[in-house]
Design a protein around this nucleic acid. Sequence first.
DNA 1: GGCCCGCCTTGATATAGGTCAAACCCGGGG
DNA 2: CCCCGGGTTTGACCTATATCAAGGCGGGCC
Lengths: 245, 245
Amino acid sequence: MNRKSAPDLINVNHLRVACSSCSLRELCLPAGLDLREMERVDRLVNRRRKLAHGEHLYRSGTPLAALYAIRSGFMKSCVLHDDGREQVAGFHMPGDLLGLDAISTGRHISDTVALEDTEVCEIPFPHLERLARELPSLHQQLNRVLSREIARDYGVMLLLGSMKAEERLAAFLLNLSQRFAARGYSALEFRLRMTREEIGSYLGLKLETISRVLSRLAQEGLIEVRHKNVKILDAEALRRMLSQR
Amino acid sequence: MNRKSAPDLINVNHLRVACSSCSLRELCLPAGLDLREMERVDRLVNRRRKLAHGEHLYRSGTPLAALYAIRSGFMKSCVLHDDGREQVAGFHMPGDLLGLDAISTGRHISDTVALEDTEVCEIPFPHLERLARELPSLHQQLNRVLSREIARDYGVMLLLGSMKAEERLAAFLLNLSQRFAARGYSALEFRLRMTREEIGSYLGLKLETISRVLSRLAQEGLIEVRHKNVKILDAEALRRMLSQR
DNA sequence: GGCCCGCCTTGATATAGGTCAAACCCGGGG
DNA sequence: CCCCGGGTTTGACCTATATCAAGGCGGGCC
C-alpha cells in the first residue's frame, strides 16, 4: 500500500486483502452482501494480524476487542477448567469467524491459539455493531454466523454425548473433509494440523485411543494415515458408521 | 383472572402478559431496553401458546417461523441421529429463548418438547429482525442472547468432554440451582422436571448411572433426593468437586 | 380406591476406553 | 551426520461406566 510507481501492482496488492476479492468471502462475514456493502465492511477490517505457530489470538478473561476472521492458517479454541484441564472446543480454518463466545459478557471465555502460522483479519467489534446497524444484511449475516456456531455446537454435543470412539473419529474426519472441500482444498487428502492429544480433547477421548482408532480404520482400509497426513479411501463407509445402527 | 366486571382487573390481566410487567424481562429478550422500546417488543409478541406436557414446540426440519420465550413451564431440546438415538442438548426454563439454532439455515435442527405444561411467547422472526433494525439495543440484545447460548454450549462441551460422572451431575445440579435462583425460586430445593434418562442423555451417561450417582451423593450427605425432588445440602462440596482435582 | 405402567433403584457382570509403560520415528538443530 | 525430543504407536492391564436383570414404588387414570 506504500509503493510509488506501478499503480496497477499496488492495486493488485490492495485487492488481494479486500473482502471483495477474498476467496473466502462467501464463507465469512461478508457473505450475502452486495459490493457497496462489502466495501464498507472492508474498511472495518483495519488490521491484519500474523500469528506464529503456538501464539495466542486471545485468552480467556480478556475483554472482547474485536472479532477475527481467519485468512490463512489453522487454530484451536479451548475452554479451561479451574483445575487446569483443558477442553478443545473447536478447530478453525480460513473463513471462520472467532470471538463469538465473548459477545454476551464482553469477555472471552476461551483461549484461541494458532496451530500453524496464521493470519487473521481483525474486525473491531464496536465498529462492527455500528455498521451492522446501518446495513441490515450485515446484521442478518452476523446473526446467521452466531446461529451457525450454535448449530455446530449441537453437533459436537451429539458427538460427545452419544457416539462411540470410532464414530467420533469418523464424524471428525468427515467434518474436516467437508470444510476443506468448501475452501477449495482436497476433500480426500489433507494434513491434520493438530496433535492426537488435541483431537482427543476435542472428541472427549485420550490420545492413545485416537491413535488406536486411526490405526484400526486404516487397517480396515477406510483411510490411510501417515503421521499427520490423512487420505480418505472410503468416505461412504465412514458415513455409514454414523447413520447406521 | 377471568372475572367480567372490575375493568381494572382486566387491565391487570393485560399487564400480566406484557414484557414490561413480566418478571422475566431482565433474563429475556427485552433485557436492557427502555420502556418505549419494550412496548414495541410487546407488540411483536402477538401470540402466546400453551403446550401440554409432552407436546412439541417445533421439530427438527420445520422452517423457522418464530423464536419463543418461555413464560412458564419447562422444556427440553434434543438433536436426533439418523438412526434415532437422541441427545438432549438443553433444558429450558422461564425466560429462556428458543429456536436460536434455526436462524442460520431457516430450519430447526432440534426437537423442542414440553416437560410439563408450558406457556411460551411467540416472537415472529421476520418481525423481530425488522424491529431489531430499528432498535439498536434490541439488536444488541439479540446478539448477546445468541452469544450466551454459544457460551453455554462451551460449558456443555467441557462437561461432556472432560468430566467424570460425579462431576457432571454436580455441575448439572449447580447449574439448575443457579438458574432457579435467578428466577426467584429456591436455589437449594427444587423439582427435576425431567426423567433420569433425559438427564443421562444430556450428560452423556445412562440412566442407571444417574440413579447410582444421585444415590451416592445423597449417601455422602451432599444432597437429598426423593424421587424428582432434590435438596442441596452442601453446595460448597458440590462446587469443590468441580474445581479441585 | 385400586390398579397399572412408567420410572426408578440396585445388583451382577461385561466392556470400551483409560492408564501406564516401552519403544519408535521423524524432523530440526548442532 | 547424528542426536535429541516431541509426538506417536502399541501392548498389557485396569476401571468407570454400560449392560442386563429383577424388583419396587408412586402417581395418574379408570
